[in-house]
Design a protein around this nucleic acid. Structure first.
Length: 646
RNA sequence: GCCGGUGUAGCUCAGUUGGCCAGAGCAGCUGAUUUGUAAUCAGCUGGUCGGGGGUUCGAAUCCCUCCACCGGCUCCA
């Protein structure tokens, strides 16, 4: 007998050789029907594997990440089976489950796969699924495995990196794949499948390698779940900032200006200005000083900082002057300029921390395929600041910056962010400048500050900037893509390169430490993600127009104008719909255009000197006096704009 | 940069066995209407069918090329 302990602590005895499926069946019929995957002592096992040792067992269903993973991983096998069915010469490589669905990377040789081929693959997958073939793991020797994949260089490469004795194949139906396991009991669980798209993907993620065809798909245990998922995708597309930004006239692009160079239209510019002022106010309270530096800088500045060596090739090319040999660069970063500001006069320890902030517009030549709406552009404005401090002030300053970032995120209702500690790639230190000692100090400072602030963090190696580690605040867009917004970075290296110093209380010269930080990250990207978060329904304090006045007929335009002026005196942004349309039409258009408040004014309102208030998405709020309405608006604005308590 | 896809009016989209002056709805303009909580009516304007080149008697439609955009990969100071 073996003893299996369940997550609730209960221990039950089973005969040796019992499968996870049989364990599930011993608990309930429902669980037996729904169990997709299992683990013993946190090691994934097949539901059909006879268990021979005691341990902690977990049974996973669709509601568990592990259950979905088994589901999608198994679906990838069926996808591979279907691809092999239609393209016998295609070479399979890897096919993992991902966050939403699965993919398979395939070398199709001379053949190409396009959208037109999706339906037949989907159909074939479902046919294979209906066969109810069981997934059967088996161990194979290295020689046997290499022999099986003699004409597949990719699998051969994978196998040669595995240790003999640990290699397993998975069979289902007539199909065999190299696989380490974690499958559904059989293929029939897969009831709905959709091939989502194809994309190029480099073998092993290295652009020097051959580009394979990556086929993305998703599958579900119920057809209705697929329909729901596709509807969700459609809904998400409606929140896309590129669509809403255009509709709401916030920003635009022009081919004549250039790729990746966003231009802010009046409404967008005003919105951005409100965001900037909001941050400036908080920063002022936190002891920052605003500075302004030029958009270009002498090439030598970036040679000094290391940016030129690191990114010179991928930047806009040098700007030349009539003078022989004089070269400038569009600034890709504000830090070198700010270092020069630091050096504008001798600094004493009494000046520190020195906090220099600038909404600095920078230009980077991003690869064309990488550009994406406002989230990835070639010209953008960072809400940048550089904090120069003494080493013993570092952690405290860092924690204060965390407070500021959290304040910004809270005010804008970004609750679902990930705090990511981005460290050096321990495998490849050549990508970075500076000494191991400095890096260790900087990395430790970030980890400790985040821990002391009680931040839940995720550590990612290889994500650091070339001059220092970062604490990045990642937020997802409407389509669940993750973007870096806020960032805080510790840097011992640029102060060295720029030979920054201050005179200490000991009358000796010392080197300051720098913190680079940008709570929004870039104004462009932040606004993009903000648009998607609120679906274009901005918080009242930010929205381009807060109020639209809807006169019932032309007779009431005078009243509307007086009302508009009154609201303007209260800093409320209002406009009047003076078209000769019916109120129903004006309301409909105002709702479609996402104006937060609609004020209907006609005979009744003129008589009683009131307004009829209607809230976007909520409907009629009844009659208010002018004053009561102004209060209503300002109360809401103030409630969402609590001051920074830094 | 790479792989795959898309490109017709400001927006959403019709229009391919290649064939009359390229269509619709919305938006815009003009006029009528003076309107009470999600679409009043009529008329009009608007497009070198992404740019360029080619095939053809004839191209939005077929071919080549460039550009932009979309989904990924790589990259992301």
């Amino acid at each position: 007998m073996i003893q299996l302990q369940f997550p609730d602590g209960n221990v039950r005895e089973y005969p040796v050789g019992t499968t996870a499926f049989e364990v599930a069946a011993s608990i309930s019929q429902g669980l037996a029907r729904n169990v997709l995957s299992a683990s013993i002592d946190d090691v994934t096992v097949e539901v059909s594997t006879p268990l021979t040792t005691s341990g902690k067992i977990r049974l996973f269903t669709w509601d568990d990440e592990e259950g979905k993973r088994a589901f999608w991983h198994s679906s990838a096998h069926i996808l591979a089976q279907a691809i092999t069915h239609f393209y016998p010469n295609a070479k399979l490589t890897i096919g993992p489950a991902i966050e939403s669905g699965f993919y398979y990377d395939v070398d199709f040789g001379d053949a190409t796969l396009s959208e037109k081929d999706f339906p037949k693959i989907e159909k074939q997958m479902l046919e294979f699924a209906r066969e109810k073939a069981t997934f059967q793991m088996r161990s194979v020797s290295k020689t046997e495995a290499l022999d099986f994949y003699a004409d597949n260089v990719y699998k051969t490469e994978l196998i040669s990196n595995l240790e003999d004795g640990t290699i397993t194949f998975c069979d289902h139906s007539n199909f065999t794949d190299l696989c380490r396991g974690g499958h559904l009991p059989n293929t029939s669980f897969v009831k709905a499948v959709k091939i989502l798209n194809v994309a190029g993907a480099y073998w092993r993620g290295d652009e020097k390698n051959k580009q394979l065809t990556r086929v993305y798909g998703i599958s579900f245990p119920k057809a209705s779940m697929l329909t729901e998922y596709l509807e969700l995708l459609e809904e998400a597309k409606k929140r896309d900032h590129r669509k809403l930004g255009k509709e709401m006239e916030l920003f635009t692009f022009s081919q004549n200006v250039g790729q990746g160079l966003p231009m802010w239209l009046p409404k967008g510019a005003a919105l951005r200005e409100r965001l900037e002022n909001f941050l400036k106010k908080a920063q002022k309270k936190a002891g920052y000083q605003q500075v302004i530096t030029p958009h270009i800088g002498n090439k030598s500045l970036y040679v000094c900082s290391g940016h030129y060596e690191k990114y010179g090739k991928d930047s806009f090319q040098a700007i030349n002057t009539p003078e022989e040999g004089e070269e400038y660069l569009l600034k890709p970063m504000n830090c070198p300029h700010h270092c020069e500001l630091y050096k504008a006069k001798p600094r004493s320890y009494k000046d520190l921390p020195l906090r220099l902030a600038e909404f600095g517009t920078v230009y980077r030549y991003e690869q064309s395929g990488e550009l994406h709406g406002l989230t990835r552009v070639r010209g953008f404005t960072q809400d940048d600041a550089h904090l120069f401090c003494m080493p013993d002030q570092l952690k405290d300053e860092f924690k204060k910056v965390i407070d500021l970032v959290l304040y910004i995120f809270k005010t804008l209702d970004f609750q679902n962010f990930t705090a990511q500690v981005s460290l050096r790639d321990p495998e490849n230190k050549t990508k970075y400048i500076g000494s191991d000692e400095n890096w260790d100090k900087a990395e430790r400072a970030i980890i400790e500050a985040a821990a002391e602030k009680g931040l839940q963090t995720k550590v990612e190696y290889g994500e650091a900037a070339f001059y220092g580690p970062k604490l990045d605040f990642m937020v997802r867009d409407a389509l669940n893509r993750s973007w870096q917004l806020g960032t805080i970075q510790v840097d011992y290296n640029l102060p060295e390169r720029f030979e920054l110093e201050y005179k200490g209380s000991d009358n000796q010269m010392h080197r300051p430490v720098m913190i680079h930080r940008a709570p929004f990250g870039s104004m462009e990207r932040f606004v993009a993600v903000l648009i998607e978060h609120c679906g274009g329904n901005f918080p009242l304090w930010l929205t381009p127009e807060q109020v639209i006045i809807l006169p019932v007929s032309e007779k009431f335009h005078d009243y509307a104008n007086k009302l508009s002026q009154y609201l303007e005196n209260y800093d409320i942004r209002a406009l009047i719909d003076e078209r000769s349309e019916k109120v129903g039409k004006k309301i409909r258009d105002a709702e479609v255009n996402k104006y937060p408040f609609m004020l209907v004014v006609g005979e009744k309102e003129v008589e009683s000197q009131t307004v009829s208030v209607r809230r976007h998405g909520k409907g009629d709020l009844g009659t208010h006096t002018w004053e009561a309405f102004a209060d209503l608006v300002n109360t809401e604005v103030n409630a969402s704009l609590a001051p920074f308590e830094g």
